[in-house]
Each structure stands twice: as structure tokens, then as C-alpha cells.
Computed example of a mutant assay.
Amino acid sequence: MRTIKRWKRSLYKKLVKYKVIAPKVIVLMDGGICSQMFQYLIGRIFEEKGYKVVFDLTFYKEWGSDMNNHFVRNFDLLKAFPNLKMEIASDLMITVYKQKYFNLGNNTYGKVDDFSFLQRKPPIYLGGYYHLPSRIWLPTFKSIFKILASGFDDSNQRMCSEIGQRHASVAVHVRRGDLKNEIPAYGKPASVEYFRLAISYLFENVESPFFYFSQMNRNGYVLI
């Protein structure tokens, strides 16, 4: 069985190398919904260059939790944005690309302002975490992430409606679990004093602010 797998991998490498199989961009998806959104965005930026992009979802099969293994990480992107289209990479494709064409993100072990990966051509496997100047990602972000309230359950439809009707709606996300400590890709967690000052500032400077809070629990993101 192992011999057959090695033979398949070897054959696939050659087919990609000599472009018998069209080379692709594979983007690793992991983490929570915000990470998923940005990783999908990276893929779309490469797609706009005319490249074929597929996604690696093995994280959600093999791990699917935070770094402390306390809080769940589900693949929720298509639940939140069902209008998005994405193709999933095969196991064989993932194995070959991770081994031969891996590129580590410029925000994985610290923020590095090196955006040369954007000039890479397929085949390429984009792993880890990335950051980009807003002028590059913001236009694409605005064009692809559309909230479709019709896909919400009754409770979330009511919340969405109330948010839209309020003069000033303010989302407050309280990070917990593995992000309660400093992590290079995310930075230091916000302190209680930060939340207190930010909320006080909005009460003093915004007319009738409407706050809604969310956090992670063992089932995913919830409003509190």
C-alpha cells in the first residue's frame, strides 16, 4: 500500500512539473471564521491573477480546535457566506504540494513586511498566516463578503435586523482560549482596561450606541 502511495505521489509530481496537470495554488484553511475569511481572500487575490485556486481543509478533519485543544474550530465560512464558491484540494494534491511547493506566511511567527509571495506563480502551497496592505485586500474583501440574512435562523435574523436599524451598532469580540496569551501572529490580547476605555469612549462620543458582544465557547462563536 505504501509503495502504491509513493508511486502515485511520484507520478503526480512529474505530471505537475511538466504541466501535464495544470499547476494550482493551494491555500491552507484553518482557525476560526476570521482566519477563514482572510485565507479565502488570499485565494481570491491569486484567482484574480488568472490562476486556479483550491483549498486545503484537512485542519478541520485532523485537528479542528484551538492550540490548547479547549475550544472548537469548525469550518464555518460557507455557513456564514453561502454565496462563496470554492474547490477543495484532494489528499494527493495536498501531500505533493506541501512537500514540494510550500510557502510560509509572512505573519506566522511574527509580522514580516515581505509581500514577494504575491509574485509567485503556481504550483504553490500557501501555508501559515499572511498579512497584506489594505490597498491590496480591501477592494476584494468588499466585493466578495456579502451578508445574506435570509440564511440566518430566526434569532440571528432578529439580531441582524436590530443591528441594521440602530443608529450606531458596535460589535465587541472577547478573545478567549489560546488567545488569552500573546501569540506572534495575533499580538497581545486586549486587556479589561482596553474594553472599559473603548466602551466609555463610544458612550461619550456616539449617540445611543448599541453594543453586542461575542466570544468563543466549546461549540463555536456565540453572542452574549
Rank of each mutant, 00 (worst) to 15 (best):
Y194I: 05
N74I: 11
I144S: 07
V53K: 04
L202F: 08
M216I: 03
K13D: 05
Y212F: 14
Q215N: 04
L202Y: 03
K8N: 06
G105H: 00
Y186V: 09
S191G: 12
P209C: 01
N219L: 10
S169W: 04
M86T: 07
F81C: 01
Y97Q: 01
F75E: 01
Y97A: 00
D56P: 05
I33G: 05
A171M: 14
D154N: 13
T58L: 13
L57Q: 05
K13Y: 05
S90T: 08
F210P: 05
R2Y: 15
R73Y: 06
T58N: 10
Y201A: 14
R196V: 12
S200L: 07
K61R: 15
I45H: 01
I88H: 06
K17E: 14
V112C: 10
H173D: 02
K52F: 07
D153T: 12
V192W: 08
F71L: 15
C34K: 10
F75I: 05
L28I: 08
Y18W: 13
Q165Y: 06
E193G: 03
D91P: 02
K180Q: 11
V72W: 06
V96F: 06
V96C: 02
Q36R: 09
M29K: 10
E204K: 13
R73N: 10
F59A: 10
V170W: 03
F213Q: 02
P209W: 00
F115P: 09
Y12N: 06
G32W: 06
D154T: 15
P139L: 08
R2H: 12
K19V: 04
F145P: 00
G110P: 15
F46C: 02
D91Y: 08
Y18F: 14
F102N: 14
N106T: 00
N217S: 02
I147K: 07
G220K: 12
D154F: 07
